[in-house]
Computed example of a mutant assay.
Amino acid sequence: MNAYTYILKCSNGSYYVGSTKDLTRRVEEHQSGEGANHTKKYLPVELIYYEEYTRIDDAFYREKQLQKWSRKKKEALMRGDKDLLSDLAKKVFVN
């Protein structure tokens, strides 16, 4: 069984982070207005990033982690910018 943590970009430029066992179905639900309240308001949405896990609880844990991240940190993750991710993580603990 696969599970996913994903990031959608909404029409207003905001990001939505979620997790699911069926990525295709869940993105379709968001796109049709059957997803979360936030994505319903800002259609259309676009899948711009996802991570795959073997367990849904791991995907859910990662979802909750990413939801706390700043926009800059999420964008660094999506770009694969490990140096900036590291710098941004250090700033959290230094402040």
Rank of each mutant, 00 (worst) to 15 (best):
V94H: 11
W69S: 14
E34D: 15
D81S: 06
Y42C: 09
Q67S: 03
G35Y: 03
W69H: 13
E63N: 01
P44S: 05
E75D: 11
T54R: 14
R55Q: 08
K40Q: 15
H38Q: 13
A76D: 00
Y16A: 07
N12C: 09
F60S: 15
K64C: 07
R62P: 01
S86C: 11
G33S: 03
A3R: 12
T39L: 10
G80L: 02
S32N: 13
K91W: 12
K41H: 06
K64H: 14
S70E: 10
D22A: 11
A36V: 08
Y53N: 06
Y50P: 04
K41N: 09
N37C: 05
K72Q: 14
M1P: 01
Y50V: 00
K72N: 11
F93D: 09
T24W: 05
K82A: 12
D83Y: 11
S70G: 10
V92E: 14
R25F: 13
T24E: 15
E52H: 08
I56S: 02
N37S: 14
Y6K: 00
G33D: 04
T5K: 02
H38N: 12
I48Y: 11
I7G: 01
G33R: 04
A89W: 05
Y49T: 02
S86P: 07
Y53I: 00
G35K: 01
E29V: 09
E75P: 03
E29Q: 15
K74Y: 00
V94G: 00
E75G: 06
V45M: 04
L77M: 10
K40I: 08
L23E: 13
E52P: 07
C10Y: 01
K68T: 09
L77A: 02
N2H: 15
L43S: 06
K68G: 08
N37H: 10
L84M: 08
N95S: 12
N12L: 04
N95H: 12
A3D: 11
D22Y: 07
N95Q: 08
Q31V: 12
K41W: 06
D87V: 08
P44D: 05
S19E: 12
S32L: 11
N2C: 14
N95K: 13
D87W: 04
Q65D: 02
V94S: 13
T39C: 09
K73R: 10
R25A: 13
T39I: 07
D58E: 15
A59D: 09
K91C: 11
F93Q: 06
G80Q: 07
T54Y: 12
R55D: 06
E28I: 09
F60M: 14
V17Q: 10
L8E: 03
L84C: 03
